[in-house]
């Protein structure tokens, strides 16, 4: 399905600025991410990594500049079509953002239900994804009964279940022990191997070295080359 040799850009950012009030969080960011790229965004805390990801999923809107994702111009997109953008993306949040009142299964299934998928399909797909992340036995558990690493695995399952083109991950291993971090990282690599595009914000230099993938560095909101 996904043509691995197609290396055209799937995300483009032109002269993007982001201000929170008078605070400049991002200054003149220019970036292109090609299909099936595994890109890291690094930088010290407060550098603007999370902000950059938020701009991509329209958690925040740009103050200046343009962003194109898979043919959609984010500054032109109507409110009604924001869900269409978000379905192209699988988002892994720093704080997991699982719904505390829903079971593991329901948390993951929600993505497919929101897409209007049939029940049998949802059932099958969610079970298979939970198996991939090694959480199939906990399908009926509530998130708070899981460890951080397990919650993050559910978050990954939820991010991939809708078969998105792109995964955005904000410090996915930041608060995990090295073993859990390894599991999460392998899952992300699996998504990349199957042809997905990834953007991962992290300050884990070890992780970047291990993969040898491209990384862009942010410092006080600016792109710096190393």
């Amino acid at each position: 399905m996904i043509d691995k040799n197609d290396k055209s850009a799937i995300i483009l950012m032109f002269h993007v600025h982001k201000k929170y009030g008078s605070k400049k969080a991002l200054i003149n960011i220019n970036l292109d991410v090609s299909k099936n790229e595994f890109l890291f965004i690094t930088g010290p805390s407060g550098a603007g990594k999370s902000t950059l990801l938020k701009l991509l999923y329209l958690g925040e809107s740009v103050s200046e500049g343009q962003i194109l994702i898979d043919g959609m111009n984010l500054s032109r997109i109507s409110r009604k079509r924001i869900p269409l953008l978000r379905r192209k993306l699988g988002i892994i949040f720093q704080d997991y953002k699982l719904i505390p009142t829903k079971t593991v299964f329901d948390n993951v299934a929600l993505v497919l239900e929101a897409m209007g998928k049939k029940r049998q399909f949802v059932q099958k797909k969610v079970n298979s994804v939970l198996r991939t992340v090694g959480m199939e036995s906990r399908f009926n558990a509530l998130p708070q009964s899981l460890s951080g690493g397990e919650q993050q695995r559910i978050a990954v399952a939820r991010a991939v279940v809708g078969a998105p083109k792109i995964i955005l991950a904000d410090e996915p291993t930041g608060s995990l022990d090295s073993e859990s971090a390894g599991v999460i990282f392998d899952l992300l690599k699996g998504f990349h191997t199957r042809g997905g595009t990834l953007i991962v914000a992290t300050h884990d230099k070890e992780l970047i070295r291990k993969t040898g993938c491209r990384a862009i560095h942010l410092k006080e909101g600016r792109q710096v080359s190393k």
Binding site: Y57, G59, K80, I82, P83, L84, R86, R87, L89, I91, F93, K97, L98, I99, T101, K102, L110, V111, E113, A114, M115, R158, G162
Partner: peptide
């Protein structure tokens, strides 16, 4: 509101 916000982030439409 938290749950609704999460639903929005994972691509649920307003209608849904």
């Amino acid at each position: 509101r938290e749950e609704i916000e999460i639903m929005r982030l994972i691509g649920a439409s307003d209608r849904f």
